[in-house]
Amino acid sequence: MHSSTHDTQSNPSNPSKHSKRIRNAILAGSAVVGMLAVSACSAASTTNAGGSDDKVTLAQPSWAGAQANIAVAKKLLEDELGVEVDVRQMNETAAFTAMDGGQADAVLEDWHGNPKQLKTFVEKKKSVVSAGELGVKGHIGWYVPKYYADKHPDITNWKNLNKYADDFKTSESKGKGQFIGADPEYSQHDTGIIKNLDLDFTHVPSGSESAQQEEIERLYKAKKPFLTYWWTPQVLQNELELVEVELPKYTKGCNVPVEKADCGYPHVDLEKFMNADFAKNGGDAAEFIKNFKWSNEDQDAVVNYMTQDKMKPEAAAEKWIKENKDVWEAWLPKK
């Protein structure tokens, strides 16, 4: 150190003390690590508070249909079986991670959006098991608003899409037509479709479902043309009139891998999943969730109470339960 000010020199951190301090620090550090190691000799428990017996944790994805499932299930579990229910907001993929780790016991509606996780947790690790079908059929597809399809009826076939591509141009679509992509979490192979069917469209992804909904509603209000990823059942299905664009028929495996995909989407039988331990030891609650099965109409009814009548999910569930005793009685475990 060239500086001739004495302050720096008078500082007691001269080299020898300095290295000594470091040595002390290392000693202290290793002592802490040692203590940790001793305390860690016992294996940590892998089931957390979320998976305790008297409480069921349900993972709730963001869309309204799933909220309807949960609201009804929660109400019945609490009122009829006396089981406390904890609802945690998480997306499909996260739900599987949570079921694997025991932070969630069950998910009531899975769209098979992440085949890789199914393979990992259900097939390989067997930490998550199927709890049967929900009864609701889901469908994904490409949609345009009805006011646009009325004007150009032939757009409902993918072969004619390029003809109208110019109508769909936006500032985000890099000179081609804009295709509004889905929340990244959802199952989709739209980039493959666009590429392999040589469509003059750019896949402009939505970052989240709510963002996509908001965008579609805005365009719908302004009566502008748009082409979007969409699905049923969906909250907005009664507010917005959309028309599906027919894509090449789905055959098993035609969408794997995404880069090679050249087909539309299948109709999915939505499925329930559970943590494996919960399925075995969950008692009545697990039994109830396995039995939980309703139709598109049932789910729509609850969704409509929530969205059109602006009821809180709990109130909507209560109303449906009051009116459909025959449906849900079958779900209760046989005594």
Partner: peptide, 21 residues
Amino acid sequence: IGGMVGGGALGYQVVYGLSKQ
């Protein structure tokens, strides 16, 4: 964060990675 509302680019890829793990 704009990746979650249609900003695309790197942000979207992070959001994608996060939601698909």
